Amino acid sequence: MEKLLKNGEVYFNTVEYFRKNDVGDYLRGDFAEGLKYSQLINFRSPSLEEFGIKFRNAKINGDTDISHLFSMYMVTSEFWEGKIHFDKRILEFGDYALIINPREFLEKVMKASKYEIKYGPAVYYKTPPIPISLNSFSKREEFKYQNEFRFVINSSSKKPIIIKIGDISDIATMIPTETLLKIEFLKN
C-alpha cells in the first residue's frame, strides 16, 4: 500500500500466479482464472476436479497465462443508489485501503506505461455452466463482492510487471479498511 501511495508502484502479477495461488486463498486466487471455453470434448483438469468441478468443454487459455493483472475495488453508482454496500469480507484485503481519484489514477497509469493496457470492470459469471467466451476480465460470481476494476497487460514476461507512476498522495488517501463499512452514500 505504501509503495503504491508514496512511490506510485503499480504491481501487475500474472494470471497464472492468481490461478495457482488459489489453494485456500479465495481472496487473491481463483482456480478458474484464465479459463476459456473450447470445443475439446471431455477435457479434464485434475486441478479443477479436486474442487468438485468438472468441465466437459473447457480448457485453460494459454494466452492468458502471459497476461498481467492489477485489480482495484470499484465504487459504482449502485452504492450511491443504495442498491449495494461494502461487504464485510473486504476486511480480509488488509487493515488499510487507499481511496483514489480514479480518473487521475487511470491517466497516470496510462501515461507511465510502456505497455498497451486494457482496463475495465470485471464481468462476473455463474458456474456452471461455463459461458461461451471468457477473457481476462471474467471472474466467477462468488467473487462479485470484490467489485473489481482490472488493468490488464499482455506481455511475454513470466515475471510481475511494475509501472512507476510517481507519488499519488495528491490524488489518494489511506484510511482504515473498517471505515469503509461505516460509509453511507447520500443520494443527490
Rank of each mutant, 00 (worst) to 15 (best):
K182A: 12
S138Y: 06
S71A: 08
I84T: 13
S45Q: 15
A97I: 02
R19H: 08
S47H: 10
S113A: 13
K20S: 15
H85P: 00
S67Q: 13
D30L: 05
K3H: 12
R150C: 03
N101L: 03
T179N: 14
L69I: 15
E50D: 11
I153M: 04
F93E: 07
L134Q: 00
Y26W: 08
I100S: 02
K159S: 12
I161S: 01
K20V: 09
L98S: 05
K20F: 07
G120W: 10
N57R: 13
I100L: 00
P102N: 01
R89C: 08
A172D: 07
T64Y: 12
E16R: 15
I165T: 06
A122M: 10
E142M: 10
Y119W: 08
N21K: 07
A97F: 10
I66S: 08
T173C: 11
D30R: 04
P102C: 00
I90T: 03
M1K: 09
I165D: 04
D87L: 13
Y37F: 11
I53T: 11
I163T: 03
E184W: 06
F12P: 00
I153C: 09
S38W: 01
N61D: 14
L180D: 02
D63Q: 12
E104A: 06
M74K: 09
Y125C: 03
R103I: 14
Y37H: 13
T14L: 04
T173G: 08
I90M: 03
K6I: 07
L98F: 07
E9V: 06
Y125P: 03
S156W: 07
V75A: 05
I60Y: 15
T179G: 06
I153F: 01
I183T: 04
L35V: 09
Y17G: 09
L4P: 00
F105H: 01
F31P: 04
H68N: 08
S156N: 15
G34E: 14
F18W: 11
K158Y: 09
I161Q: 01
L5N: 01
I90A: 01
K182Y: 08
N57C: 02
S136T: 07
T127W: 12
N61W: 03
K114C: 05
F70A: 02
F70Y: 13
D30A: 07
E116N: 14
K114Y: 00
G82H: 06
G29V: 02
Y17R: 10
K114Q: 12
N101G: 00
E33Q: 11
V75D: 01
G120S: 07
P131F: 02
F51W: 11
L35T: 04
Y124C: 04
S133M: 11
N7I: 04
S113I: 02
F185A: 10
E178T: 03
I130Q: 01
L186I: 15
I100D: 00
Y124Q: 02
N147W: 00
F18A: 10
W80L: 09
E104I: 01
Y26G: 13
Q146V: 08
L180S: 05
D167G: 11
F86A: 02
S155W: 09
Y125R: 10
I99T: 01
N21T: 12
K59I: 12
R19L: 12
S47W: 09
G94W: 06
S113P: 04
I161T: 08
K88F: 15
T64M: 14
I66K: 14
Q146M: 10
V23M: 05
K20C: 08
N147Q: 14
G34A: 13
